[in-house]
Write a protein that binds this DNA or RNA. Sequence first.
RNA 1: GGAGAGGUGGCUGAGUGGCUGAAAGCGCUCCCCUGCUAAGGGAGUAUGGGCUGAUACCCCAUCGAGGGUUCGAAUCCCUCCCUCUCCGCCA
Length: 426
Amino acid sequence: MLDPKVLRADPRTVADNLARRDFTFDAAMYAELEAERKAAQSEAESLQAQRNTLSKRIGEARQQGEDATEMMAEVTGLGAQLEHRQAALASIRQRLDAWLIGMPNLLDPEVPDGKGPQDNLELRRWGDPAEFDFEPLDHVQLGERWGLLDMRQAAAMSGARFSVLQGELALLHRALTQFMLDLHTRQHGYEECYVPYLVNAASLEGTGQLPKFREDLFALEGEQHFLIPTAEVPLTNLLRDTILEMPELPWKKIAHTPCFRAEAGSYGMDTRGLIRQHQFEKVELVLAVHPEESEAALEELTIHAEAVLQALELPYRVVSLCGGDIGFAAARTYDLEVWLPSQKAYREISSCSNFRDFQARRIKARFRPGQDKPPQPVHTLNGSGLAIGRTLVAVLENHQSEDGSVQIPDCLAPWMDGVTRLGVAG
RNA sequence: GGAGAGGUGGCUGAGUGGCUGAAAGCGCUCCCCUGCUAAGGGAGUAUGGGCUGAUACCCCAUCGAGGGUUCGAAUCCCUCCCUCUCCGCCA
């Protein structure tokens, strides 16, 4: 949620900024609603003040045994007026709130202009895509070749966009998870959390998935609960209604969870393999920091995610998302894109964002800048570190040999039970 | 799932429908006293909103949430949520 004070003070700048997202903000309409709100609130409050003082005097008069019927008649008249004003105020408030909750975050000035993914700005590359002197297989061919990946059975029991991993491939999947968790907790200072996979609507509203993107979510039939689309939701909501003290910053949490996405609107996209699934695992990093630290924190967070790709020896690039491609709640986002030989393209494997105070306002996550200073919203950030399924894809495809076997990166050894190569054990 | 009890400020915990935004204690901050330590004395210590140059006054709201009764609700009534205890079931 945007700071209402900024909206009031500088609606033009807000409108210009949001135009870069292709979002139209009707500043004049907003100003009008705001003026109405202000008038209604002032009136309602002064009526209330009158009622309060009169009621107080009635109490005093009664205690002294005096007659208060006149004052009571007066205050009864006030009550009717007050009810009117309050109803008006409530309806204006409701309209303003609905408006505010539907407005995306302001973009950082550094966000590149653009309409879609093709306009994202490449910041840097790491590693060189391997030159194969044979035609590389894609991860489905590799997995099915050794009987470790079964898309058909998954489709039979659940439908499209599900998968079954078996044997060493399932082991590799788990090893990747363990490796990422250990790396981030031991070397990057994140605290591991176990969190609910079902959350209520308020939590999703807090992080920005609702009310606008309901169709991307799986809702449980009896309502109340949604399957989480990312651990960002439960982790960020840990901060709801809390005031952090300075020593608690930066607040850094990590969780490994399944993620569930309806993938509405992506018909025909990435229909093959593990790239786009209804259910996948992800290791998620979430931070809350002092507002002055959030820009640096985004750089650091991105480096933490990059460390995983580097350890796994996977070539990747970092891109800064343009105004037309960046998410609703983010002020700035860096995507990590890993090289996929089968597609001869870089594909998203992590998304690291600075939300500034946007989520913090929605969930009332604040910190106290100092003794006797009023609390103010923290800045929140999050990033995938990484999406497990896509990492699995990248490992298979980048580390394959001509015979279809796959070299397991050394850093995974502690969890691979002696397996150093997929497709040779027999 | 059944039965009962309860949800008050950072914590513990009072609170007869008006003098309670809230006693008291603890914690925390500042000051005084004290050779050090310990003890003692004093002051301060919720959040959001409005107004404002102001994080000063003043005003409004908030005692789990939402409704209701009343001139007036932390206090009475209703609905919902959550916690605890016992029983049942269960990984």
